[in-house]
Computed example of a mutant assay.
Amino acid sequence: MRFALSAEQRQFAESLTGLLSAADVATVARRWAGGEHEPGLKLWRRLAEVGVTALAVPEHRDGLGAGAVELVVAFERLGYHGVPGPWTDTAAALPALLDDELLAGVAAGETLASLRWDPHVPHALDADVADTRIAVDGTDLRVFTPGRSLSGVDGSRRLFEAVPGDVIASCPDPGRAFDQAALATAAQLLGAGRWLLDRSVDYARQRVQYGRTIGEFQAVKHLLADVATRLELAGPLVYGAAVALDAGGDVPRDVSAARVAAADAAYLAARTGLQVHGAIGYTAEHPLGLWLAKVRALTGTWGTQAFHRSRVLTALRAGSVR
């Protein structure tokens, strides 16, 4: 498959890059981690104005009715810039879970959602700031009440126990919502991995050791080249899974393959970034730590690596590879 973004999709990505580059997202994320939501909500509304929250919402609910490719374009930018908030729950999963008038609020950027989906999402993300809280129980959708706040690897991902309540709706086929959320997570991981690579390359060009920038040393070049290769290989899998999701191909296989590749590449980028930065990468003040924590957290949500590898293996054993 040969895949290239259209001019409109590239323009959309560039507009998000311009908006987020000027937003000091690292500060927003730190304040979000401390429970100060207003800067993050302001950024949420700005992203809603350019259509991010409306992408997956159908047109009859005032959304854009865009495809999974556009969703991946947006979530890769969100991951690259480390934007906090329940983006996957709200903008990727919820529009595929139910067709309800509340989606108009999602599209407008006025409604934030938090989901619990055992066993893959056992704790609710940002339930304290969410307007809509839903626990997926098989095909039943239940409201839930936020319980105890939990500590996690990534402080900007605020997790809560969820106490399920009454059934409010049903979703005969929640698989699409799960795959769309897993794909959005893969796109975020891909973006985060690319940010880590970019920052590591920049640092290697500036840090001087033994009278030379460390980027001149062959060992450092090899480390960074390995990361670049893994990310370049993961990218087509992520976008290919988006095409499959829109076309109705072998979606679970393709989404899981993309998720595994993106998470592995992002984890390698995180590990290598820490090696290249050395001791400064351990400091709380350095922004590297925000992305290291985000990669670690995202790798374990919307399905573990073991789960997604198992789905790929099951598809291969069933002879679904064409």
Score class of each variant (00 low, 15 high):
M1G: 15
F3Q: 11
F3H: 11
S6F: 07
A7T: 14
F12R: 15
G18F: 00
L19W: 04
L20S: 06
A22E: 00
V25G: 04
T27Q: 02
R30S: 01
A33H: 05
G34I: 06
H37N: 14
H37E: 14
L41K: 04
L43E: 10
T53F: 07
D62Q: 09
D62E: 13
G63N: 04
G67A: 05
G67V: 03
V69P: 02
E70C: 14
G79D: 14
G85M: 01
W87P: 03
A92D: 07
P95I: 02
A96L: 08
L97Q: 00
L103K: 00
G105H: 08
G109K: 09
L112Y: 01
S114A: 00
P122E: 14
P122D: 13
A124E: 02
A127Q: 06
D128W: 10
V129G: 12
A130Q: 08
D131Q: 07
D131H: 13
G138I: 14
T139C: 15
D140H: 15
R142M: 11
R142K: 12
P146D: 03
L150A: 13
D154Q: 14
G155V: 03
S156Q: 07
I168N: 10
I168Y: 08
I168C: 09
G175H: 04
A177K: 09
F178E: 03
F178G: 05
A182V: 14
A184N: 10
Q188M: 10
A192H: 04
R194Y: 01
L197Y: 02
D202W: 12
Y203E: 03
R205H: 12
Q209D: 12
I214A: 12
F217C: 10
Q218G: 12
V220Y: 11
H222T: 05
V227E: 08
A228M: 06
T229W: 15
L231Q: 09
G235C: 07
S256L: 11
A262N: 04
A262W: 03
A266K: 05
Y267Q: 10
L268A: 09
L268K: 07
R271A: 01
R271N: 00
L274V: 02
G278K: 10
A279I: 06
A279H: 10
I280Q: 04
G281D: 01
H286Y: 10
L288H: 14
L290Y: 13
L292Y: 15
R296D: 10
A297S: 02
G303Q: 08
T304C: 08
T304D: 10
A306K: 01
R311G: 05
V312A: 03
T314R: 09
A318R: 02
V321P: 05
